[in-house]
């Protein structure tokens, strides 16, 4: 196995150490590297959404006060279909002008509600308040409520849902 030298034990030991660390690192790499890929691989796949969603007839929304519309979208995550819920507030300003806001708080993604008494969207998590037009009135949110691009076709509102 090991060659004879003046101190056979030492050289033999060193030889074994070298072989051991060599084979050990091969095994470590051949299992370790794939395991890293295995663990992080779902993080490398981003599913995109680029869709026009119908919110129903324009006439069904009152002028002046926000109305919540909820819908779902399904995505494939691993072995299951994940159904994500979305909520949007439609604020109709006049016959044809409107704004569509996401009900996701820009702070930490809790869902805001319209509170008639204080005339603001209030977040149940950190007491943030947004005004009718999405501006921050109070609390920690870093930016106004997110707004959706929309179009009106045959009297129906369509919003542009994008996610990357």
């Amino acid at each position: 196995m090991a060659k004879k030298s003046s101190s056979p034990n030492l050289s033999r030991r060193d030889f074994t150490k070298i072989v051991m660390s060599f084979l050990g690192s091969i095994m470590g790499a051949m299992v370790g590297v794939p395991i890293i890929g295995y663990v992080i691989s779902p993080a490398l796949k981003a599913t995109e959404i680029d869709d026009w969603v119908s919110l129903g007839a324009l006439d069904s929304y009152p002028i002046g006060s926000p109305k919540l519309f909820s819908f779902t979208r399904t995505k494939v995550n691993g072995w299951e279909q994940t159904t994500n819920s979305y909520g949007v507030f439609v604020v109709r300003k006049s016959e044809s002008a409107l704004n569509v806001y996401s009900n996701v708080c820009t702070h930490l993604s809790c869902r805001v509600n319209w509170n008639e008494e204080v005339a603001a969207y209030t977040c149940p998590c950190h007491d943030a308040q947004f005004g009718l037009n999405g501006e921050v009135l109070y609390g920690p949110p870093p930016r106004p409520m997110d707004e959706y691009e929309y179009t009106i076709e045959d009297g129906n509102i369509l919003i542009h849902l994008t996610e990357a």
Binding site: V31, I35, G37, Y38, S41, P42, G78
Partner: peptide, 22 residues
């Protein structure tokens, strides 16, 4: 879900086939 999750390991996850194969 057991069967589907293993299908995912085999086809969807990087190197899942290797980990399960070993």
């Amino acid at each position: 879900k057991a069967y589907d999750s293993i299908q995912y390991i085999m086809n969807g996850v990087a190197f899942g086939w290797l980990i399960r194969g070993i």
